[in-house]
Computed example of a mutant assay.
Amino acid sequence: MEINASSWEDFILVGFSDYPKAEFIISLFVSGFYTTTLAGNTAIILVSLQDSRLHTPMYFFLRNLSFLDICFTTCTVPQMLVNIWSGNKRISYVGCTVQYSVALALGSTECVLLAVMAVDRYFAVLWPLRYTTIMHQQICHILAAVSWLSGFANSLFQSSLAMILPLCGHRHVDHFVCELLIIIKLSCADTGPIESKMFIARLIILAIPVCTILTSYGCIARTVMKMHSAEGRQKAFGTCASHLVVVLMFYGTIMFTYLQPQNNYSKRQGMIVALVYTIVAPTLNPLIYTLRNKDVKRAVRKVFCKI
């Protein structure tokens, strides 16, 4: 399919410009959350590397998740703040393509990584004596690599389909970021067949991890209920509760956005939900994983005592 020269024109990210008074307040809210995201997730990475007691599979995957969250928010938030504070809503075609491709890759990677973390908790609770043998360093690196590769493969597939669509008419994107679902709407071609392929790809990258998570936690719940020791049940619940909260928050917003029919996609709802999974969730992840975790608290105190 031939691409018009006009397809290379700049896009205009409309964002919250319909609400100029609220836009500045939203930018302060976003910048505060972004700063907290960078500080919290960087702290988790450094602390878990510093303390030898945190050199376990669980914290290895948690470091991957923290790094993912830093990259994910950095992919979208700085551009959003620049657009709001400068008053210039433009973003180049290349910049827009890179943004939605990288954001999709990182979001897809997180979908798979959260499933891997559920499997890790499955072995920790059901096979505690064989846990370190099963989840050895090599298998952890392989599982992390699978998460990253599958996420970027999904993005490559969907982004390639979007890039071959000819764009025409206005370049106003009704969002604060270059959102793939909205970019497709700017095409003057029949997008039905391509949207169907993209929907199947989104379904796969979401359905397989969700089924894995549900199966893992179903087995964990059954095992925990059979435990005679209240202390054992509490410990098992504590290792899984934090991960479950993150899973529910992330998958709930992602599935609401990407698994609904295109004609039902609402600009206002889409932006609010996007704020949750791109800005709020990455900020809360460090808090969720550390507030109930004695090992992390102990490691943080140890680091601060050295300082």
Rank of each mutant, 00 (worst) to 15 (best):
M1G: 10
E2L: 13
I3V: 15
A5C: 01
F16D: 06
P20A: 06
A22F: 12
I25A: 12
S27A: 15
L38F: 04
N41P: 06
V47S: 02
S48L: 00
H55D: 15
F60D: 07
F60M: 11
F61E: 09
C71M: 15
C71S: 13
Q79A: 10
Q79V: 10
L81H: 02
I84Y: 01
W85N: 07
G87M: 04
N88G: 07
T97M: 10
L104I: 14
T109S: 11
L114K: 08
D120W: 01
L126W: 02
L126R: 05
L126K: 05
P128K: 08
L129K: 15
Y131M: 07
Q137H: 14
I139W: 14
L143W: 07
A144H: 03
V146Y: 12
S147V: 04
N154D: 09
Q158P: 03
S160P: 01
I164A: 01
I164F: 02
I164K: 10
P166I: 02
H170D: 14
H175E: 11
V177W: 02
L180H: 06
I184R: 12
L186V: 00
S187V: 01
C188I: 00
A189P: 02
T191D: 03
P193T: 06
E195R: 15
K197Q: 15
L214I: 12
L214W: 05
T215H: 13
R222I: 11
R222T: 13
M227A: 06
S229A: 07
A241L: 13
V245Q: 11
V246G: 05
V247A: 08
Y258Q: 09
Y258I: 12
N264S: 14
N264Y: 12
M271C: 07
I272F: 10
I279Q: 06
V280S: 04
V296R: 03
R301Q: 12
C305Q: 14
C305L: 15
K306D: 08
K306R: 12
I307S: 09
